[in-house]
Design a protein around this nucleic acid. Structure first.
Length: 286
DNA sequence: ATAAGGCCCTGACCGC
DNA sequence: TGCGGTCAGGGCCTTA
């Protein structure tokens, strides 16, 4: 499932492959992939346009065009973008194809059909009230503290809330909470400023490491798993400390990793390292 | 405003 | 072998 690091890798990898290319034709194989405008207007709006940049905001990919409109893409759970020659073998999971001026095609594969494309005048139409970018200077420990103050929802759920911070999904929420030594089930409002500072630092560290490692590819190369545009897999899954490591020893203390449900999401944590109390914290919860 | 639950989707997996 | 039920979950929508 592509989160911030995977989407960032897409934006970086696609830049030299797409910038300057013109879209010659668009094939929409699963109409609901196009969120806005209508499929007809989407195709007409893209044909003939040149892609002038590739960017990312949260988990959204942004492709600014030469007419100052923007193609926005969200991969959701199983969406993949890959670039291949026109004669690539047919694939039943391809939902949308951009034919490019250099003869290459950008294929959007999406097993579960959750991914969405938007063609808009202003990306803000799609991005709405997305929270701050976690790796940018504008996002401070105090911002995180203020955002979770007074909230009863578990801190894990708040990290997944894109209004609080943009781009964090299930993998990196679990990994960051582990590094910060915070129990994912604790209410946001129970976190001290010191804990929020630690979480802020650990979140950044996790995301930056994952970007460097090319993101996380779960379950090998099988259907619907993240791959980079030329088919390369990520490496960060090899560094996961808790995510999908239920029953395996904690890399710090050896205690078996536990799996629980938090906010309807499977959640992995070390019951010892992420206990309710840590020296130095004025923890309000029992 | 917040929190919780349903919905969209399909393939893998489990138990009988 | 076959089949029904369950799970996975991001974002958006509805409900309290």
């Amino acid at each position: 499932m592509p989160e911030l690091p995977e989407v960032e890798n897409y934006a970086r990898d696609l830049k030299p492959l797409l910038v300057g290319r013109r879209i010659q034709a668009v094939e929409v194989l699963w109409p609901r992939t196009v969120a806005t405008p209508s499929v007809e207007a989407f195709v007409q709006g893209l044909v003939g346009r040149q892609i002038v940049n590739t960017d990312r905001r949260g988990k959204y990919l942004l492709f600014p065009l030469d007419d100052h409109r923007t193609l926005v893409v969200h991969l959701r759970m199983t969406g993949q973008l890959h670039l291949a020659a026109a004669d690539a073998p047919t694939d039943p999971y391809v939902r949308l194809v951009l034919r490019l001026s250099d003869g290459q095609r950008l294929y959007f594969r999406d097993q579960r059909k959750f991914g969405r494309f938007y063609l808009v005048d202003d990306p803000a139409q799609v991005l709405g009230r997305l929270g701050p970018e976690p790796l940018q200077d504008g996002f401070t420990p105090l911002d995180l503290f203020n955002a979770v103050q007074g909230r009863r929802a578990p801190i894990k759920a708040l990290l997944l809330d894109q209004h609080i911070v943009a781009g964090v999904g299930n993998i990196y929420a679990d990994e960051a909470l582990f590094l910060a030594g915070i129990d994912p089930r604790r209410s946001g409002g129970s976190l001290t400023l010191a804990e929020c500072s630690r979480l802020h630092a650990c979140l950044r560290r996790t995301l930056a490491e994952a970007i460097r490692e090319g993101g996380s590819t779960l379950g090998g190369s099988s259907l619907g798993n993240y791959q980079r545009p030329l088919g390369v897999q990520g490496r960060y899954q090899l560094r996961h400390r808790v995510f999908r490591r239920t029953g395996q020893p904690c890399p710090v203390c050896g205690t078996p990793i536990q799996r629980v449900k938090v906010a309807q999401r499977s959640t992995h944590f070390c019951p010892r390292c992420q206990g309710h109390y840590r020296v130095g914290d004025a923890d309000e919860e029992g």
